[in-house]
């Protein structure tokens, strides 16, 4: 289960709709081992695509170093789908990073009504989990 604050989710939703139809992406970091998402960090989508995202590698290095300095790790990876529902795509599975992190997908597709779902990637498969908003 992913427990996330409404304010954090609002930040992600705002970013996702602001960038629509380009896919938005980012992370929420938190203390190592805590499974508690604290800091929303929007990332630049270097692909600038409606169907693909890739973190800007230079920005990623900077953010990862800052997380190290604060004993933080990625608790949540998030991105938007702008033309489909909030289900993992083949590319999401292909690039999935195994581990304990959560993967949040926000759909900004007009037929999806802001659908948001959370997953964990286990053995190359996406397993949906409960999303608890507090």
């Amino acid at each position: 289960m992913l427990t996330i604050k409404q304010k954090q989710l609002d930040t992600i939703i705002e970013q996702s709709f602001a960038l629509h139809p380009i896919e938005a992406c980012g992370v929420i970091s938190g203390l190592i081992g805590s499974d508690n998402p604290l800091t929303v960090i929007p990332m630049d989508n270097s692909a600038k695509s409606e169907t693909f995202f890739r973190f800007c590698s230079k920005q990623q290095l900077k953010v990862w170093r800052e997380m190290d300095e604060h004993d933080h790790e990625v608790i949540v990876f998030y991105h938007s789908h702008t033309n489909s529902r909030a289900y993992p795509s083949k590319e999401d599975i292909k690039f999935s990073i195994p581990g304990k992190s959560h993967h949040l997908i926000v759909s900004t597709d007009q037929n999806s009504h802001g659908e948001i779902r959370s997953y964990r990637f286990v053995n190359g498969r996406a397993v949906e989990e409960t999303l608890k908003i507090i």
Binding site: C25, V27, M43, A47, T51, F52, F53, R54, F55, S57, Q60, L61, W64, F77, H79, H81, P88, S89, K90, E91, D92, K94, F95, S96, I97
Partner: peptide, 10 residues
């Protein structure tokens, strides 16, 4: 040298 996972998807 720093190695990081590329974060990407569709």
């Amino acid at each position: 040298i720093t190695i990081l996972p590329a974060v990407a998807g569709g």
